[in-house]
Amino acid sequence: MNPLLLDVPLKLETERLILRAPLQTGDGNMVNQAIRDSFNELKAWLPFAQEQPSVEETEINLRNAHINFLKRESFRFLIFHKGTDDFIGTTSLQGIDWDIPKCEIGYWVNTKFGSKGYMTEAVKELTNLGLNHIKFNRIEIRCESTNLKSRCIPERLGFELEGTLRNDDLSADGTKLTDTCIYSIVS
């Protein structure tokens, strides 16, 4: 089946969260503010957060994410709290290989909403979407070995640590070699 024919929901719900595709004009302002609020923490781990983006750059990034969603190249969701409508972060099915089919999950959280289990809840729902709705055979989560907060998420959700690739990548700021942990779950 051609992936363009897949019916992928634009909105997912969990007990506490709503995950929706970034398709509303103006999402860039909200997401940009969360990046600014969380900049110091994000900068340590994410190459895109080495410099604070402008609102316009964030809006363009989100519009491209929506285009990629429609083209079935990646599926990014913005995460909101059900009760307060606060923006919590993003999570994505990305790096899709439709021949296998498999993908990777990426995520980041607004610092003020960290350590509350929201990202684990969101990634659990995205894993369910990937395995049971889209029918991926394999989902990976890759993260720097020293990023213990990020590593906790796949570990809590029953992903298996397949290994650590030594000197596999550069740090987010590009100054040193880092090790990458690869977690996976298979159907």
Rank of each mutant, 00 (worst) to 15 (best):
P154Y: 08
T91Q: 07
L177D: 02
K11M: 12
L23V: 01
V186P: 01
M30F: 00
N132A: 09
A65T: 07
E140Q: 15
R166G: 00
E59T: 06
H66E: 12
T58R: 04
D86F: 09
L5A: 09
N68M: 11
G95F: 05
E59M: 02
A34Y: 00
S38V: 09
S74Q: 13
E15Q: 13
L12K: 04
F80T: 01
K102E: 11
L5S: 06
K71N: 15
F113G: 08
A34I: 04
A34D: 03
G95Q: 12
I96Y: 05
K176I: 09
Q52W: 03
P47L: 10
R63K: 15
D97G: 04
E162I: 02
K71Y: 02
F159S: 04
N29R: 12
L165T: 01
V8W: 04
T14K: 07
N40I: 10
Q33A: 08
G114L: 01
S115V: 03
N132V: 03
M1K: 10
T175R: 06
F69V: 05
G174Y: 05
E140G: 06
T111M: 02
S145K: 14
D173N: 15
N32T: 04
R20L: 05
V55T: 14
G117A: 11
V109G: 04
Q24R: 13
F159L: 03
I105N: 04
C181P: 01
P9V: 00
Y183T: 07
I153G: 08
F80Y: 13
K43N: 12
R138I: 06
N147D: 10
E51T: 14
R166F: 02
D169L: 00
N147Y: 09
T120V: 08
D179N: 13
K43R: 15
S92Y: 06
V109T: 15
T14W: 07
F75K: 03
S92C: 15
A44W: 01
G83S: 13
R16P: 07
S150Y: 03
D86T: 03
E140I: 07
R72M: 00
G83K: 15
V8T: 08
L161E: 11
A172W: 09
G163N: 02
H81E: 13
L17V: 04
I88L: 12
T120Q: 01
L165E: 12
K176A: 14
K71F: 05
G83T: 12
G28R: 07
L23C: 10
E15K: 13
R151C: 12
D179E: 02
F48D: 02
E13C: 00
T84R: 10
R76S: 08
L6Y: 12
I79L: 05
I88S: 00
T120K: 11
S187N: 14
D169I: 01
F48Q: 00
D37P: 07
T25Y: 07
L131F: 11
L17H: 00
S184D: 11
E162R: 10
L131G: 03
F69Y: 15
M30Q: 12
E160W: 07
D86R: 06
I153P: 05
E104R: 11
A21I: 13
K116I: 01
P3F: 02
G83E: 14
W108N: 09
N68W: 05
R138Y: 03
F87A: 06
T178V: 15
C181W: 06
T58Y: 07
K149T: 02
K135P: 04
